[in-house]
Amino acid sequence: MPLTREDIERIASLGYSPDYFVEHVDGVPRLRNVEGHCVFLDPSTNKCKIYPHRPMGCRLYPLVYVPGEGVDVDPECPKAYTIDRKSVRELAPLVLRLVEMIYGSEKL
C-alpha cells in the first residue's frame, strides 16, 4: 500500500518508527509487509492495529487506479462485490487525488 507523507506522519505520531512500517519500492514509500500481510495486521484478531489512523489508500480500498482505465474495484478483493458503481463514481476523485499525491500528475 503506497503511503503519503501525511500517512507516515500520522502513523509515526502513534509512536511507530517509520523504519518499522515503511519500505521504499521504486522510490515510493509503502507499508511494509511481514509474511505476506501488512505490518499492522494483528494475527491474533485478524484486525488492523491502527485502523482509525490507517493510510488513505487503506481507507479507499478496494478502489484502485488502473492506468489507462481510471478508477475501479480491485477484483482480487474478497469484498469487491460489496462496492456499487455509484460509490466508485463518488469516491473516484479521492482515489485520483491520492494517486497524484503519491506518484505525481504524470501517472494519471
Rank of each mutant, 00 (worst) to 15 (best):
R32N: 12
V34M: 04
T4R: 11
V22P: 03
L41F: 05
E90G: 09
K79N: 10
S13N: 04
F40G: 10
I102S: 07
D7S: 06
E9R: 02
P29R: 05
V99G: 04
V99R: 06
P43A: 08
R59Q: 01
P67L: 01
E100N: 11
P2R: 13
K79F: 13
L108A: 00
V39P: 14
K47H: 14
D74G: 03
L63R: 03
D19P: 01
E6C: 14
G70L: 00
L3Y: 08
M1P: 00
L96D: 06
L96H: 00
V73W: 08
F21K: 05
A80H: 07
R89Y: 02
L3W: 10
C58A: 13
E106H: 09
K86F: 06
F21V: 06
R54E: 04
K79T: 02
F40V: 10
H53E: 14
Y16I: 00
G70I: 01
V28D: 09
G36F: 07
A12V: 11
R54C: 04
V66M: 14
C77T: 07
V99F: 02
R10N: 10
L14Y: 05
G57V: 12
N46G: 15
T82E: 09
G36Q: 04
L94G: 14
R89G: 06
V64Q: 04
L91T: 06
P52M: 01
T4F: 08
E106M: 01
C58G: 13
M56A: 13
Y51E: 14
R30H: 09
R30F: 03
V73Y: 11
E9D: 15
L31Q: 05
Y16G: 10
Y81E: 15
I50Q: 02
A80Y: 01
V64R: 01
V71C: 10
P29I: 06
G57D: 13
G70P: 03
K47R: 15
M101Y: 00
V34F: 08
V73R: 13
E9I: 12
D42H: 10
I50L: 06
S87G: 06
S13T: 02
H53Q: 15
K107M: 06
G27S: 05
V34H: 13
E76S: 15
V95A: 11
C38M: 07
F40M: 07
M56S: 11
R32Y: 09
Y81T: 13
C77I: 02
